[in-house]
Computed example of a mutant assay.
Amino acid sequence: MRINDVLNAKSSSDVITIGPDASVRDLVALLAEHNVGALIVSADGESVDGIVSERDVVRRLNDRPDVLDARVSELMTTDVRTCEGDAALTELMRVMTEHRVRHVPVLTGGKLTGIISIGDVVKNRIGELEFERDQLDSYLHQT
């Protein structure tokens, strides 16, 4: 299975980005509006300048109560793990586990084309297991 297969199965292929100069308040609004846990930080909508998650915001609240007035660039992670859409899903699972990341931008030719979350990966894996179970059940109950 390839990463693009998982992306194609998602209900929406939209990649929501936010500029590095946007406020964290704007970030929180976008996260809520699109019901996602992270956004790609991109100045042009095609490159990956960073990634920022709701966890990044929550972790900063303790140290900085005015975090909502900060810029996204102050919170974002700049060392972003990315993947290509034609890469094997098993490789992405390894990267997500090894580096403890939950969201990975997908690039094609160096340009942002998608984002895949750990939830997308788990949903796909459950679907595969259910299919295998159904196939085995069908085989065992053939007359």
Rank of each mutant, 00 (worst) to 15 (best):
I116E: 09
S138I: 00
V95G: 00
V106C: 09
D134H: 09
R25E: 13
I126S: 01
L75I: 08
V28P: 09
E74Q: 14
I18Q: 06
S138W: 13
A70K: 05
R133K: 12
E98C: 02
T17I: 07
E130Y: 10
D5N: 14
V106Q: 09
I16E: 12
V67P: 00
V15F: 12
R55D: 06
D26H: 09
N4M: 12
R133Y: 15
H99W: 15
S13E: 12
A43N: 04
K123R: 15
L31G: 08
D44W: 02
D69M: 02
D120A: 06
S53T: 15
R60C: 00
V122G: 03
N8G: 01
G119M: 06
H141F: 01
R71A: 13
V122L: 15
R94V: 11
V24A: 05
G45Q: 03
H141M: 03
I116D: 09
R60N: 11
G119I: 02
S138K: 10
Q142V: 11
I40S: 01
F131V: 03
D69Q: 11
S47Q: 05
E84Q: 13
P65W: 10
A9D: 10
N4D: 15
E98D: 15
T82V: 15
G119E: 11
A43E: 14
P105Y: 10
A87K: 08
V58G: 00
S117E: 06
G50V: 03
L129T: 06
D49N: 14
G45I: 01
G85H: 09
E132S: 03
L75Q: 08
I40M: 00
D86I: 01
A88V: 01
R133W: 13
M93P: 05
G85M: 03
T77G: 08
I18E: 09
A70E: 15
G45P: 10
S73W: 06
G37Y: 04
S23I: 02
G19V: 04
E33N: 05
N124W: 15
S53G: 01
R71D: 13
V52S: 02
A88M: 07
L30N: 06
S53H: 04
R64P: 00
V106N: 10
T113Y: 06
L61H: 01
I3P: 09
Y139P: 15
D14R: 15
S42F: 03
V95L: 13
V58S: 02
